[in-house]
Design a protein around this nucleic acid. Structure first.
Lengths: 134, 134
DNA sequence: CCGCATCCCCAAGGATACTG
DNA sequence: CAGTATCCTTGGGGATGCGG
C-alpha cells in the first residue's frame, strides 16, 4: 500500500494544455488550467464539502462525523479524511484513552478556502436561478 | 434517449445535507453545499476548462477546438460542448454552407465565471506551493 | 467537416463483514 | 470506537468506425 494520497496532479501538467493559437496573451493557458485543477481536486467530489462543513460545525469524532452525513460509508469517510489531512485542511489528533479516541478538526489553513467556497456558492445560486428559474 | 444534459442536481438536495448538530448558525449547511455542487458540476471535470479556454482564445470550429486540445476525443468534446451549451456558457451557431459549418463561441454569461475561476486559480497556485514546495 | 454509435475497460465507491 | 478488508456494481471515458 504505497502513498496514493495527496497526489497533486503531477504528470498532467504536460497534457492538459491548450494550443492557444494566435500570439496568446500573457495569461498562458495552462497557468490557468493547472492551478484550477489543483484546487478542484481538493474540494470537488461528492463528500469533501459535507465533511468540511460537518467538522467545522463541531463534529470531531469519526463516528460523529459519519452519523452526521447521511449515506456516507466508513470506508469513504476514512479515505476522504486522509485526503483532507494530506492537504492540511484537517488535523487528526489521537488521544491515548481506552479505547483510543481520535479527533478531527479543521486547520487554520482551511479558512483560506472560504473565499473559494464563497465564490462557488454565489455563482451556484445565481446559476440555478438562471437555468431552472428561467 | 432522454434529455440527460443540463441536469442541475435535482434530487441530491435531500441527501447531501449535513446534520449540523448544535443550533446550527444561520449559514444553513446545504445552502452551502448545493450551490457549490451546482457550480462544481459546471466547471469541474477533465475537459471543461480547457474547452472554455480554447473557445475563448478564438478556436471556433469543432475540428479546430479538437485539435487545440491534446488527447481529447470527438465524442467527449461533443458531449462537453453540449453540456456547456445547456448551461448557457457556449453558443452554437450553424452556418448553412456546404458542408455545414458550426461555430462555437462563449456567451457573455460565461464571463460571470471569471471570478470563480480566478478564486480557484489563486488558491490553487498558493496551495501547490504549500503542499509541494514545503 | 461534424459529430453519433458501439464496444470495452477500469477505477470510484456502495454493501457487508471483520479486527485492534 | 476507529477504522480495514473483500466483493461487486456502475458509468465515465478511451478506441474505433460509420453516417449526414
Amino acid at each position: 500500500m504505497q502513498m496514493k494520497t495527496a497526489e497533486i496532479t503531477e504528470e498532467v501538467a504536460e497534457e492538459l494544455t491548450v494550443d492557444c493559437g494566435q500570439g496568446s496573451s500573457h495569461t498562458d493557458c495552462h497557468k490557468v488550467i493547472i492551478p484550477v485543477r489543483d484546487a478542484l481536486d481538493v474540494i470537488s467530489g461528492k463528500w469533501k464539502l459535507p465533511i468540511i462543513i460537518a467538522v467545522s460545525r463541531g463534529h470531531k469524532r469519526f463516528r460523529d462525523i459519519e452519523r452526521s452525513i447521511p449515506k456516507i460509508t466508513s470506508k469513504v469517510l476514512s479515505k476522504e479524511l486522509k485526503d483532507l489531512e494530506a492537504h492540511k485542511l484537517v488535523k487528526r489528533t489521537v488521544y491515548d484513552t481506552q479505547p483510543v479516541s481520535v479527533e478531527y478538526t479543521l486547520t487554520s489553513y482551511a479558512a483560506t478556502l472560504d473565499s473559494v467556497i464563497l465564490a462557488l456558492q454565489r455563482w451556484g445560486i445565481q446559476h440555478r436561478k438562471k437555468i431552472i428559474g428561467k
